[in-house]
């Protein structure tokens, strides 16, 4: 009995110290990444919170002081702010509806066998790799320009009067441009997910006489539900801060017709130099994004366990 105890304790000591050294090594190897991300995520956040309760305008740096909730109050009662929130919701919602709805159908379509499938798939996903400034100017000038644009020429060819899309329907046009960039992302992800669908299951359903629509609703959609959730959440994170597309096409106008939250904060900070007001807007943006992030993280965490 004694002998055994002595034996295990002798064994346990090096094992415990080995475990400790492993943990130490692990900690040392991870610490640069952890320290960098800690600083990056905490310092700017605290500064935004600090500025959001300060009076601070870069044009007049002498006028500084505690503002309390004034910046927030000013922001929340500003009609432009409500418009920008609405525009953000329309932009995110519109692009999501197009990219997820159409993306699901296209994923099914491009999963079918047809001649030149590989090339057709590459053509469809290409817009995702176009940098936002190029995508926006490409649409603004080459496609939708009321005089020289290809779409205007097509409208004239069928006897219609070309429309100046970006000044008549700025937000809807922006939804279209951004959807052109993000629909390929949805197709890419959903096509990957659909390829892991069991063909035997589909075959069996077909044998049982299930039609195309029934197969899609009862087999394909449930299989894709998780991938669709992931697409929605990742796109939401990026779409909440759409900036370049607005900046090079409408600059938020006419008026504030196409100003989203990101562009509003930018114009408060770098055009009006109102640090306090822009920071209050920043805090709102962070809160909105965090709500989305919480959902996304839960989905990813569930995936880590399996």
């Amino acid at each position: 009995m004694d002998k055994v105890a002595v034996h295990t304790s002798v064994m346990a000591r090096p094992a415990a110290s080995a475990a400790r050294s492993r943990r130490l090594q692990g900690f040392v190897l991870q610490s640069p990444a952890i320290v960098l991300l800690l600083v990056w995520s905490v310092v700017p956040l605290l500064m935004t919170l600090w500025y959001s309760v300060r009076n601070y305008n870069l044009v007049d740096p002498t006028q500084q002081g505690f503002a309390g909730i004034n910046n927030y109050w000013y922001l929340l009662t500003d009609p432009d702010f409500m418009t920008s929130l609405e525009n953000t919701a329309i932009l995110v919602g519109g692009v999501l509806a197009i990219s997820v709805g159409l993306g699901t159908l296209l994923a099914v379509l491009y999963n079918e066998e047809f001649a030149g499938r590989g090339i057709a798939r590459i053509l469809v996903i290409s817009p995702f790799f176009i940098m936002p400034t190029v995508a926006a100017l490409l649409w603004k000038n080459l496609m939708l320009h009321p005089i020289y644009g290809v779409y205007s020429a097509m409208m004239r060819a069928v006897g219609l009067t070309p429309v100046d899309w970006l000044s008549r329907y700025p937000l809807a046009t922006l939804v279209m441009i951004v959807a052109w960039e993000w629909l390929p992302f949805a197709v890419l992800i959903l096509l990957t997910a659909i390829q892991s669908l069991d063909t035997e299951q589909k075959e069996a359903a077909r044998m049982d006489g299930a039609g195309m629509v029934a197969q899609f609703i009862n087999i394909t959609l449930p299989h894709l539900s998780r991938a669709i959730t992931v697409v929605i959440m990742i796109e939401t994170i990026f779409l909440l801060t759409v900036f370049a597309e607005i900046s090079v096409t409408t600059a938020g106008g006419p008026g504030v017709a196409s100003t989203n939250l990101a562009f509003l904060i930018y114009s408060r900070a770098l055009l009006q130099f109102d640090v306090g007001g822009a920071s209050a807007g920043g805090v709102v943006a962070i809160v909105v994004a965090n709500v989305v992030a919480a959902f996304l993280l839960r989905a990813v965490a569930r995936n880590l366990e399996t």
């Binding site: 700017p44 500064m47 801060t241 900036f243 904060i265 770098l270 920071s279 805090v283 880590l304």
Partner: peptide
């Protein structure tokens, strides 16, 4: 740690535009 790292990616850049610019 992994999940926390991911969460830092979800911080919207526009939320920290002011401090980073300054």
């Amino acid at each position: 740690t992994l999940l926390w790292m991911l969460s830092t990616r979800m911080l919207p850049s526009v939320g920290v535009l002011v401090p980073i610019y300054l």
